[in-house]
Write a protein that binds this DNA or RNA. Structure first.
Length: 346
DNA sequence: AAATACTGCAACCGCCTTTCA
DNA sequence: CTGAAAGGCGGTTGCAGTATT
């Protein structure tokens, strides 16, 4: 027994919308609004369309101030970094880009951005194979240093680890704590530019500008509060904007925190990049800037270094609007946090 | 010039969540 | 409190336009 269909499938038109249908729908909504009932709307205006189809047409095409195509570099960066942060939550991502629809962004990601990312990775892989590559010479030196310091992480300098994480898999995936940490560092402190005090009654921790120490704090926090590593741990924002940890249903799909716990819940494409790439993170230079990657290797980054937004010029987005109406000027991270608050409040 | 492959996008489908009687 | 209806969302499909052979 399936669910009853939302409309009579036999009597609704499907496929592309005609200009007449568009005009009917648009003029009606502009005059009367949706009336809070999409299902009834097509009957009211004499359209042989499913209510859901009308809603989609309005939201994705007819609504005022819709932009199509012509994504800017800045928008690319926002989409990529949000995708990395929250995954395929297209509606949330779209909310950060005024005039863009979730469908548009989804299509853009699937048809272009994903390929751009993967193409870049492959290019880097090929470039690495070239024996005359200066980059390889640089890396070789780095790898020698790294090998001497840490046999388990041949490609990256070892970072101080305050608490052990029980990983047995030696593959360069995201269930390798060091790789996760490095990845977060490379992401540029996505959640590191706002100091957010954390209180949960038993212990507290403070997000700092140092993303790697923050991840360590989160891990330690879970240990202190006896939260099993296999259990879902969520960062839950309370009304004052603080983050509380709770064993509850995920607000952010547990992406970041599961990563921190070694659970591989990363977007598949990005995980693939890391999996296929012995360097773990190469191929993401267009997000962070190639120079930064190699500078960081060369500088033998440690977790005590602060990796704030200021350093990540290519990742820093100018204030973006959080919604279509208000166009409030806030930073991307503030918007994400607001989304989280909204989820909790509702 | 025709056939085939590829690409981008609009729209649909079905599942999950929210609302409301 | 419960269940049906509607809303919302992400994944997928189908098709038109373009590029390649």
């Amino acid at each position: 027994m399936g669910r009853a269909p939302c409309c009579d499938k036999a009597n609704v038109k499907k496929g592309p919308w005609s200009p007449e249908e568009d005009a009917k729908l648009k003029s009606y909504i502009e005059k009367h609004g949706t009336g809070g009932n999409w299902i009834a709307l097509p009957q009211k205006i004499g359209l042989k369309r499913c209510g859901k189809s009308c809603r989609l047409r309005w939201l994705n095409y007819l609504r005022p101030n819709i932009k199509h195509g012509g994504f800017s570099e800045e928008e690319d960066n926002i989409i990529c970094s949000l995708y990395i942060s929250i995954g395929s939550r297209w509606s949330i991502i779209a909310a950060q880009l005024p005039g863009r629809t979730d469908n548009d962004i989804k299509n853009y990601w699937n048809t272009r951005l994903k390929k751009k990312l993967l193409g870049k990775q492959r290019k880097e892989q090929q470039a690495r194979r070239g024996t005359s590559s200066l980059k390889q010479e640089m890396k070789r030196g780095v790898e020698m240093v790294s090998d001497n310091n840490n046999n388990q992480n041949p490609y990256w300098p070892e970072l101080p680890v305050l608490a052990p994480i029980p990983f047995s898999n030696q593959e360069p995936r995201f269930n390798d704590h060091a790789s996760i940490r490095k990845f977060l560092i490379k992401l540029g402190g996505r959640f590191s530019d706002i100091d957010v005090p954390i209180h949960d009654g038993t212990s507290s921790l403070q997000f700092t500008n140092d993303i790697s120490s923050t991840t360590q704090q989160i891990y330690e926090h879970s240990m202190i509060n006896n939260i099993p590593s296999s259990a879902p741990i969520d960062a839950v924002l309370n009304n004052t904007g603080n983050i509380q940890f709770a064993q509850a249903q995920s607000y952010m799909d547990g992406v970041e925190l599961n990563m921190l716990q070694g659970q591989s819940c990363f977007p598949v494409e990005l995980e693939e990049i890391v999996y296929n790439n012995p360097q773990g993170l190469d191929g993401l230079e267009f997000l962070c800037g190639e120079d930064m990657v190699y500078n960081r290797i060369g500088n033998t980054t440690t977790s005590s270094e602060s990796v704030g937004w200021g350093e990540m010029s290519s990742l820093i987005h100018p204030p973006v609007a959080s919604n279509y109406e208000g166009m409030l000027q806030r930073t991307q991270r503030e918007c994400v946090f607001e989304e989280l608050r909204y989820y909790q409040a509702n």
